[in-house]
Each structure stands twice: as structure tokens, then as C-alpha cells.
Design a protein around this nucleic acid. Sequence first.
DNA 1: AGTCGATCCTATAACGTTATAGTTTTTCCA
DNA 2: TGGAAAAACTATAACGTTATAGGATCGACT
Lengths: 346, 346
Amino acid sequence: MDEMTESPLPLVGAERPTLKTIAAATGLAIATVSRALKDAPDIGEETKRRVRETALRLGYRQNRAAVRLRTGKTNVIALLLSTESDVMNHTSKLLYSIADALRGTAYHLVVMPFFRDQDPMDPVRYIVETESADGIILNQTKPDDPRIRYLAEHHIPFATHGRTDMGFEHPYFDYDNETFGRLAVQALAERQRRHVYIIAPPRNHMYARHMIMGASQEAAARGMRFELAEGVTSDSSADDIETAVAQRFSDTAPDAIIAGSTTSAIAAVAGAERAGLQIGKNLDVVSKEAIRLLHRFRKEMIVVQEDVGRAGSFLARALIAAIEGRAPDEGQALEVPQASDFRTGN
Amino acid sequence: MDEMTESPLPLVGAERPTLKTIAAATGLAIATVSRALKDAPDIGEETKRRVRETALRLGYRQNRAAVRLRTGKTNVIALLLSTESDVMNHTSKLLYSIADALRGTAYHLVVMPFFRDQDPMDPVRYIVETESADGIILNQTKPDDPRIRYLAEHHIPFATHGRTDMGFEHPYFDYDNETFGRLAVQALAERQRRHVYIIAPPRNHMYARHMIMGASQEAAARGMRFELAEGVTSDSSADDIETAVAQRFSDTAPDAIIAGSTTSAIAAVAGAERAGLQIGKNLDVVSKEAIRLLHRFRKEMIVVQEDVGRAGSFLARALIAAIEGRAPDEGQALEVPQASDFRTGN
DNA sequence: AGTCGATCCTATAACGTTATAGTTTTTCCA
DNA sequence: TGGAAAAACTATAACGTTATAGGATCGACT
């Protein structure tokens, strides 16, 4: 353990070149070098060429701290991740797609999860107060989301995964959970199911409202029974969901389940099977998922894919456009599922 | 879409206070305020109190860019994430646990995934050349890992998820895959299985070697057949794994499978079942997983849990200790599975 | 009384960059 | 040929912090 503190190999070091180094090497002023590197119009072509060549040769890299101090620009995108959300690769997919979209740009990705015991406002306030990011991506939006109000008030560019309902526009990417709910009920109706049991996300989330609204309206229109799971949401632990479903389904059971995520779907199926039901026989189950998995679990399940990767890269692009004051190609997008996307594994 | 660019709500703004502001408010010199806030021994107690009180009242927050420029300290921990690794919450668990361990410290978490088309050295070189992090956590170590050699040469503190084999010590956290392999074979032997088929990680990874070594030695000691999956690894796509297993098992099939991860296990089981095998009857399957899921998939599976959360917080603590020149409580740790951890869902 | 040593505080420079105003050189035209 | 304008470059200050060397004040010891 001792070798760990001292270094195992010799230092190769050499000082990191700065604008000063290049200025000395080319005989130009520091300011000229700076302007040449950013292709300012009042620098001669030949000079620019020489500066660029020298910079490359010396391995010059901008000192981000100095730029940040001088300009106030951080080149940081903060991703606020809710750790409460039901993940199953949702999180890593989102992360990877944002990081991928950031490749080749000047932006770095700082991840700030917030935890159960934390006020969701904490990371937001921190970023605003310390000016530690140029823009923020946040997920798990609520209809009236104090984080978003705060960001808007402080003119911090942001983009959300999920819509809000607060009377002003902002960049977002959302999955159309209302349509998901409608089409899920429709798929179940086509299989002659009459009583839908839905495990929705926590009610104070925007996407829960959409999903419940879509499903309940469609069920009503078709004269089907609609029942919201009691005591559990799609964010509950798998054990809790399994237990709740097992109990509820040992009674006069519903004949259909809608789940909003991979883990809740698996737990619900386990619960229903424990109560003696069988998918495809006296039960059908609809879920969406971020990775293809559920059909290997039970091929009779009706599953639709949610393209989280598209969400991530869209949000990254929209946010950078907002930061740089450019008009985004599109600032808002909705991923709308089609009836034909709801498939079994057969 | 137009409202999006201009701001929906009025700016509240007020300038951010600096040391200068506090100096003016207290009548002290900027340097004194700076030293008072860091509790330097040559500042009077009463003065310190006054400065702290004023700082709090004005809502002072250090400007990180200035500190970074002046001291060279970034307060950034970079997490290099391999996107090739089989995830299933492995990634998000690791991420969350690191972020959680960083709470209350001065460190931020910058995530840099690297992608298939990228040289794994790229992010490492970038960080070293731009001095953009105080320390680095990396996963997916190789026996002789050029990233680690480079970091050691440049004296950048780092900690790895997984061991290496390069002749010098460094902080790491590793899961003992050799013991996993041994115990997996043992569990299969107890169920009278005689022919083990193993879907290992890509061979150039450290943990693949360990797993294969442990399993093959134990199999040899017990006179069991040992067969390495051909053409697929645990990082292959689920479809590829399922197909490969289905083909191999339609022949004179092995009677046991060892998989290193949730997704590969699910795909392998799907393939074996397609070939007509049945878990618990003429087949047993061992896997490990980062979240409890596989027993809901097939309760007959033999599963052991890998505590990725412990890995993350250990790595964060060890790395910060290294950065700050402190001796870590422990700098290296191995999570060793026990025979009793291998359980079915019954 | 003089000096020494604490104790507490301050002035200054520097980190690397960029914005601004200004200076020199060249070009062009009447 | 004189002068103005355009082109190309430079000097300087500033962003907010910290390290360093140094200054003032006071009590204590000889």
C-alpha cells in the first residue's frame, strides 16, 4: 500500500504551453495570438496560419479555467438525474446519448444526481448560485415545477425530459404517455380484456398524469373498468409491487395490466403469476421499455420501445442551441407511439 | 417556439458577491478575507467570526474558476465509462454511488463515456493535457492497460474498478471473479452437472481472465467438461447470445451455463430454452447481477448479487484520499462472494 | 530603554485568458 | 503628394482568487 502514494514512474512533465509561449515563439503579442486562434477578422491570413501551426506544434490547449474566469462561460452542461426514477438502463441510455451528442463540442457533462433525502431544488440552486454550468438538463418534470420556475427566473438555459404545465414555453423532449395509455388500452381491448389495472408513476409527475389520462379516457370510451394500483407506483420497489399485485389479483382479478417500465412490469407479472394468473390466457400485460428485454422474460407481453437515446441527443442539441442563442432546429419534440409499435414477442 | 429564446420571467439578479465585496463590507483587505475564510492561523478569532458572518449574510460563494486558475486545483473527478460494458443498472448504480460519496465534498463528477469508434486513450489524454480533473475513476481494466500506464507516468491520481497486472500498486475495487467462477462451478457440481458452458466477458479484460481461470480450474479439479462460448462474449448483443446458445445447445448440449451479467444470462436462458432445455431439469444456470431481477425471470436460476454501490463509494473515497495526499483507510478492496451467496429464487 | 518575538493584518503579484482602446503600417484616392 | 481610411497588430486592464513577503502594533524580557 505504500507504493501507492509515491509515483511508480518518472515524471515526464514539460510545462503546458500558454498563449504566452506561442507569442514568444512567433514574436507576436499575446492578444494577437488569442485573436488569431479565434479567427478574428482583423488578423492577417499569414499570421493566423503561423499561429495555428505553432499552436499545433507545441500542443497548445486553452486553459478552461482562465477562459471561464474571464468570460464567465463554463462550457459545462449539468445533467440533473433523479435517482428515484425507475431506471433499467433508462439512465445510462440517457447519459450516453447526451455524452455522445456532446462529443466534438466544447461542452463537458457534469452529472448531479439528487437523492431521496435531498430537496430537488438543491442542485439547481447550487448551479445558479455558483454559476457552474451554462445550461441544465433535467428529468422527472412536475406540472408546476419549482426548479423550472427558478431556472427561468434566473435566465439559465435548460431543457427538460418531460413537459410541464406552467404557462410558458421551453425546450423539452417528451414521450407521449397519453397516447401510450390510449394505445395500451386499445391493445388490451382487442384481446377482449375488460378490466385494466395500471401501475402508474407517482401522481405528482407530469408523465403519470398523461398516462393515466390517456388510459382512463380510452377505457371509459370502451366501457372497460379502469383501476389504479393502490399503494404502489412504478417507482416502488419490485418487492412491493409484486406483493401488491399478488394480493390484489388473488381476489376477483383484473384481466389486464399496464406498467410504465421494465422493472415494474416484471414485478407485476411475477405478482400476478403468484396469484395464479397466466399471461395470454386470463391476463394480458402492456409495458414500455428502454432496452429490449421483456420479450425474453415473457414473450406474450405486449411491449413498446421508448427511444431514450433520441431523447438525450435531442435535449443536448436543443440546450446547446439555447445556450449559444441560436434558434434550435426544433426546440420541443414528442415521441408518439403508434398502435403498430405494441407487439408481443411472437 | 419564439417565447423560448427570450425569457419568460423577469431577472432578479444582483451581482454575485466576491472577496472584494466582503472586504469592502468589513473594512478588511481582500487577502485577509481570503485567509479568514480558510481559517488561517494568523487571523484573529474575532475577525474570522466577522468575515464568516458577512460572507454568510451576503451569500458568498467561491468562484471555482478563479481558484482553479490560481491553484491549479479543479475539484473535478472524472468518471470514464465504458459504454461497451454490459450494463443493466451496473452503470447507473456505479454513477449514483460515486455521486453520493461526493456529496458534501468539494468535488464534482464529470462523466466521459467513450464509444466503440474511439480510442480509449482519448479521454485520458484529454484530461491530462488540459489538466481538467484532479483524479480519474476508470472501469474495464485490462491486464496491461495503456490508460493506467499513462496516468501513472503523468502522476494523475486514479482509481480503477477492476485490477490490473502491470507491476505497480494503485487504488482499486474489484469483484473477485475468480472466486465467482470457482463457486459457480461448485454450485453446478452440487446439482450433478458435468459440462459447463461459460459466456465470459471479452478475453482482453482483466475480469474475464479471472472468471475463466477460476471456473476452468474448479471444473478440472472436479473432472467436469469446461467449454468457453465461441463467437460471443457477455458484451455481445442479446440477440447474438441467444442465437449462439440456441445453436450450440440444439446439439449434444452442455448441462450448465455460467453468465457474468444479467442481460447475457437472460439471453442465454432464452437461447437454451429455444433449444428445448429447461432450467432445473436438464440445465442449471449461474449468473451474477447488480440489481435483483433474475429470480423474477426464472426462479430456478442460481444468482449472486454484486454490490456495485459499494464499489462506487469505495472508489470515490480512495481517489479523494489519493488526490489530497492522505493515506486511504484502505486503497484496495476485493468483494469476495461466498458459497452461501449463490441462491435460487425458491 | 531597546530589542525581540508574537500576533494580526495588508500590498502586491501572479495564474491565462479576452475585450477594449489604441498605435503603426499600408493602401487608396483626389 | 497629402491625407484619410483600412488593415494589422499591440498594450493594458480585468476576471477572482491565493501565495508571499512584508508592515504595524503590542507585550515581554533583559
